[in-house]
Amino acid sequence: MRFLDTFFDGAVMAKYLPELLSAIVTTLWISLIVVVAGLALGLVMACLRTLGRWYLTLPIVAFADIGRALPPLVVILIFYFGLPGLGINLSGPMVLILVLGGVLAAFAEEIFWAGLTSVSRGQWEAGRATGLGFGQTLFEIALPQAVRMGIPPLVNRALAITKMTALGSVIGVKEILTVSSSAQSFSGSATPLTMAALAYLAIFLPVVILSRVLEQRYAWAV
């Protein structure tokens, strides 16, 4: 019973529910922007890379490598605590969106590019031989196949990165973990943390299950 009181205290739950709900909304909209911007930027970079110009490829590869190699929290701290010294003041949510969007873009670029390189040369030749231009062949033939191949890893990666919105708690973004942590220290009960865990499960468990379904679907279709 002590366990239930500590982790599932009804009174505490009721008290902090409204605050938590608005935090969920914050987590959701930040996630949405991160996913849309990250995927779009990754796609654009992968397409530019097909042009095969070194002055495009070099910065794209460097960006993708650094974005994949650096822990996001390091970059978040640099942006949040370092940039004001240069007179650039970014809000917590802004930093979170820039960093996580950038990290997702780095991974997405690599996934789209891996997809594009695995579209066989014959597909490109068939397109060009029927009079399609480079851009038409890219957008009509290569890219749809690359995207399809990339869907399972993209879903996984987007999931992993949207979960990192919890890092917003380090720079005061009022998202789920921030709100529940402070509620926990105010109330002296672990219940708000339980609520946070449940909130995250409600958001992300469906995505995890979706990723399983997608993986199975695309595993057999190829």
Partner: peptide
């Protein structure tokens, strides 16, 4: 460039590996 694409319209090609677009 574009003129070559137009020219290729007049030259049909069939490949050993078919290369139909799977999607």
């Amino acid at each position: 460039g574009r003129a070559l694409d137009k020219m290729r319209l007049k030259i049909g090609m069939v490949f050993q590996g078919f290369h139909l677009y799977p999607h």
